[in-house]
């Protein structure tokens, strides 16, 4: 088994078997995290670089902890204080990092396809930590791990995702990954934030938040960028909260044991009313631990593939 490709660019590039292998490995990694002694030696002597062209405290920290727990040397490059700002091209920067003997480059970029563009030029493995509106595979994997801990099989499960679908790489990665495992994904959001042809990714577009959540096994809210209001995608925060938030009533339409997720950070009172965010069904805080476990699994499996070659 193991992973087929050198890089983890997106859920598009993974098979159902590979996704399950990552999730099973992540379950073991989670035991390591929870064991108290968090050190493993899987990545000892290996070097990992995070290359972030976009700010993200949580994703970056999650990757850094994952690599530290497994004993790798890691370095961070971000948009401030490096060549990234000095007009050097993405490819030049990536090649430089590659030539320094880096094993894995974890990259976040505001342009869709940026990791896909550099990966073929590099010896290092590239992990996509979010590219534009395209994909965020490790977020989807951690969401799926959160689900996998609560049900044994994805087959026939209904997952509801509500919010700004258009700009969301989390939706794309989840829709692709969940469909591959046999789950049914239903989405809802303002029509101005619903991308044309989303049905062809195997998802169903619902008519309302309640319709989207009806009989769902899991419900996911998405962060809405408040600046989208300026591009006329919705008129005001209060109107958004009234018509598009996941309310108590919407959550009640889901299955009784359904749980609520959110990739964070959440705008309280906008996409989720505070009482919903904090409700018993919310597993938002558990998702964060799973993020580290999934990233440990991804780094472990990519490194195992490198060691074999």
């Amino acid at each position: 088994m193991g992973l087929k490709n050198k890089d983890l660019l997106g859920m598009k590039q993974l098979t159902a078997e590979e996704i399950m292998e990552i999730l099973d490995t992540a379950k073991m990694m989670k035991m390591v995290i929870e064991s108290g002694n968090k050190k493993t030696t899987h990545l000892q002597g290996k070097s990992i670089v995070t290359l972030f062209y976009e700010n993200s405290t949580r994703t970056r920290l999650s990757f850094e902890l994952a690599s530290k727990y497994m004993g790798s040397a890691s370095a961070n490059i971000s948009t401030s204080g490096s060549s990234v700002n000095k007009g050097e091209s993405l490819l030049d920067t990536a090649r430089t990092i590659d030539m320094m003997g880096t094993d894995i480059i974890i990259m976040r970029h505001n342009q869709s396809g940026a990791p896909h563009f550099i990966a073929p030029y590099l010896n290092a493995s590239v992990v996509n930590a979010g590219d534009g509106m395209n994909e965020h595979p490790t977020q989807a994997l951690l969401d799926m791990l959160t689900m996998y801990e609560r049900f044994d099989s994805f087959e026939g499960k209904k997952i509801a995702i509500c919010g700004d679908i258009y700009h969301s790489r989390v939706v794309r990665s989840n829709a692709i990954g969940l469909s591959k495992l046999g789950a049914k994904v239903s989405v809802y959001g303002p029509r101005t934030m619903m991308p044309i042809g989303i049905e062809e990714m195997g998802v169903t577009v619902a008519d309302s938040v309640i319709d989207c959540c009806r009989d769902a096994d899991a419900v996911m809210g998405l962060r809405v960028q408040l600046e989208r209001q300026k591009s006329s995608l919705f008129p005001s925060v209060s109107e958004y909260a009234k018509f598009y938030a996941i309310t108590k009533e919407a959550l009640a339409a889901a299955k009784p044991d359904a749980f609520l997720m959110h990739p964070g950070p959440c705008n309280h009172g906008v996409e989720l009313p505070t009482e919903v965010y904090d409700c018993d069904q919310s597993v938002i805080n558990q998702q964060v631990t799973n993020g580290v476990a999934v990233r440990m699994a991804v780094l472990y499996l990519l490194m195992a593939r490198r060691n074999e070659l």
Partner: peptide
């Protein structure tokens, strides 16, 4: 072009 392909690969589409 805006359509299923642009939606799938996350590139802003031109209708």
């Amino acid at each position: 072009n805006e359509g299923p392909v642009s939606t799938s690969i996350g590139i802003r589409g031109i209708p």
